[in-house]
Every structure is written in structure tokens, then in C-alpha cells.
Simulated scan of single mutants.
Amino acid sequence: MSDQIRSLTLSHVVLPIANPVSDAKVLTGRQKPLTETVLLFVEVTTTQGLSGVGFSYSKRAGGKAQFAHLKEVAEAAIGQDPSDIAKIYESLMWAGASVGRSGVATQAVAALDVALWDLKAKRADLPLAKLLGSYRDSCRVYNTSGGFLQASLEEMKEKASASLETGIAGIKIKVGQPDWRLDLERVAAMREHLGDTPFMVDANQQWDRARARRMCRELEQHDLVWIEEPLDAWDAVGHADLSREFDTPIATGEMLTSVPEHMALVDAGYRGIVQPDAPRIGGITPFLRFATIAAHHGLALAPHYAMEIHLHLAAAYPTEPWVEHFEWLDPLFDESIEIRDGRIFVPQRPGLGFTLSDEMRAHTQDTVTFSA
């Protein structure tokens, strides 16, 4: 007899950020400083006694909506075979079809989808990367958390040096300020400070097409690994045009919440770096669907945030990817990830390789359980 999903526990978790940060969206007045990460955790157990854990997240808004949406549709998964992940995914999409197949709907379902992949790898007694078919046991890693715009130039330099001393390979900083001259000054100063260290910048969608072309042209001299989100995230044609016009690679995709939204980049002739985010695109199932297409088109990969999930997915991508390092979620898990010599290493424990910490429980504001 096949296994069945016996119970699902959903947890709404609010994790404060010790030092609030601001990117260009704050300086242009479009958002408030980031003070917390709101997470949706799913713990799944089966009739054969197996378990899995997954999560999704939101910043600034949407966390409560994710929790509420999954509460409405999660019961559709009860009694299903947990190995039939694609089938379960489709059933949850149909259960919430009236609100569409992107945005909050996919981000909510993502937490359960990730939990099912964690469970499946645990059933096989393999790290998730090995279950998927990994190409490598570690990936290049860069840090973003030290490069936000509320930090002074000296503070950014200090944080970058500290990150490199821990074994991080690359550094990314935020740009996109209303005064573009300040961006250029900070980038030039950081390039001088970093020497030959791999260096990326992120404009967080704050340039129009004309400004983006001018900034990309000015930034060519700094030998950047990439220029991230120079345009609105849904301007596929604009990003594709920039990716063909400049030598410095363009990177985008972190904000997109479905495979079709990512496919718009491919259809527009995009030649840059894709940055799908598993919790945002809808989970590991849709992430893998798009990753296959991206690899077919020869696109480089650098998944966004959530390194606890993306490290496994990056290890299973054909060409060498970058993984983004944020320490913000560390308190939620009992285990840490090994970083050394510029690389972040796939945990050798089964599944994602993480268990939820007491601190995660302490930050849980609401929870609900569904059971057969």
C-alpha cells in the first residue's frame, strides 16, 4: 500500500532583522525599510512515519496572505501519496484557481511543495541535491546582506572584508539611488577596495530604460559579475535588450512568481543570468521546470535568497551557478552551512538537511494542523 499524507502543520513565523536595511526602493519612496522576514513553514507527516519541512517567505507585505491562502487549500493534499509531488501541486493550484496561478497563490503552495521534496529525499536517504542529480557538492557563494544603502561606504567595506574572511567569494551591493552619481562613486570605491574579488550590483528595479542604458555603460569599466534588476522586474523586453547590448551580464527574475512570467524573458531573447526564487516561483516543482528550459537556452543561474533551499537546486544545475548568502534565516534552523574557500557546501544530511530550531517556534505567531 502506498504512503499517504497524514497531517500538515502550517506555521506563520515573523523573524525580526537585527539591523533594518534599505535598498533603492526605500530611497525612492516606494517601500519602507525592511525590518523583518515573514515565513510560512509547512511540516508534513505520512502514514508510514516519514516527515518533511518546507518554507516560503515574504518581505514587507504578504506573509499573512500566504498563510491564509494555504489554510484554505492545504486540505486537498491530505490522503494523497506524498511522492506524487507534481500531482499534488496541480491539485492545490486547482483548489485555489479563482485567485490565479501566480503571486500569493504560488508562494503559499511553495512551502508545501518544498516540504514534499524534503520528504522525498529523506525517504531515499539522500541530500536533495543528490536526489535531483547533482553536478557538484558545492557552489560559488556571494554575500548581499552587507551591501544595503543605509550603510555608509566605510561600513560596506568593513562588512565586505569580514564576509571574505569567512570564506565568501563575492560581494554584491545595492545601487539605484535617486542621485545616480552616488551610485557610481560607491561602486568605484568598492571596486578599488575589493581588488579582483567578484563584484555584483543590484538596482532593485529603480531605473527606466534610458537611465539603465546609461548606468550599464558607465558600469562596464568595473568588471562586474552582473548588474541586477536594472529595470522593472516584468519588463522582459527591456532586460533582454540590455542583456544583448552590454558585455556585463544582466541578472533578473527574483520577483517573478510563475514559470510563464520567467518564460517571458526567454521569449524576448534574454541572454543574461536568471535568478528564480523557489519560494516565489511556486516551489521546487516549478523551479525545476524553468531550470530545464533555462539550461536548454544556455542561461547562467544565480537563485535568489533562501540559500537553505537554493544550494541544493544550484548544485543540480548543469553550469556553475552562484548562490546568494544571507545569514538572516540562520536562527530558524539547528544546523549551519559550511562555507570555505569561496564556496558553500551542500549538507550531506538527507533532504534539505535542516531541522527547525526552538527559536523558530518562539517566533511562531499562528499555527494550524490538518489531519486525516
Rank of each mutant, 00 (worst) to 15 (best):
P198G: 11
L182C: 14
G146R: 09
I173W: 03
L126P: 08
P198F: 08
E220R: 04
G167Q: 04
A160Q: 04
W234S: 11
K159V: 03
R214L: 10
Y142I: 05
R209N: 10
F148V: 02
Q177G: 07
L219F: 05
R213V: 09
Q205V: 01
V175W: 00
E218C: 05
A233T: 13
D202W: 02
E220G: 07
L128P: 02
L219Y: 02
W207I: 03
C216E: 08
W226D: 01
D125E: 15
L242Q: 09
A189Q: 04
S145G: 15
L132Q: 08
S145L: 13
D137E: 15
L242V: 12
L242I: 13
V141Y: 04
V201W: 00
I227V: 14
G167I: 02
L224R: 02
S152W: 11
A240V: 06
F199D: 00
K159P: 02
L164W: 06
L182A: 15
L149N: 00
E154S: 08
A151Y: 15
G238A: 09
T144W: 07
W234K: 10
D137L: 11
R123I: 15
D208G: 07
V187R: 00
A212H: 03
A210I: 14
R140H: 14
Q205D: 03
S163K: 04
S163Q: 08
R217P: 11
D137F: 11
A160H: 03
D125Q: 14
L242D: 07
V225P: 00
G176M: 03
Q205E: 06
S163T: 06
L182H: 13
S152C: 09
C139S: 07
A151R: 12
P198N: 11
M200S: 01
R191C: 00
D179W: 14
K172H: 12
R214H: 12
K130W: 11
R140E: 14
R186V: 05
L224C: 05
A236E: 01
E158R: 15
P127M: 03
Q150G: 10
A189M: 02
N143S: 15
G170I: 03
A210D: 15
S243Y: 03
E228N: 13
A203Q: 01
P198H: 12
K130F: 11
S161Q: 13
I173Y: 04
L132S: 09
S163W: 05
M190F: 05
Q221M: 02
C216H: 12
N143L: 13
A210W: 15
R217M: 12
V175L: 05
N204M: 06
H239Y: 07
R186M: 08
A236I: 01
G146N: 14
V201F: 00
M215T: 08
D223G: 10
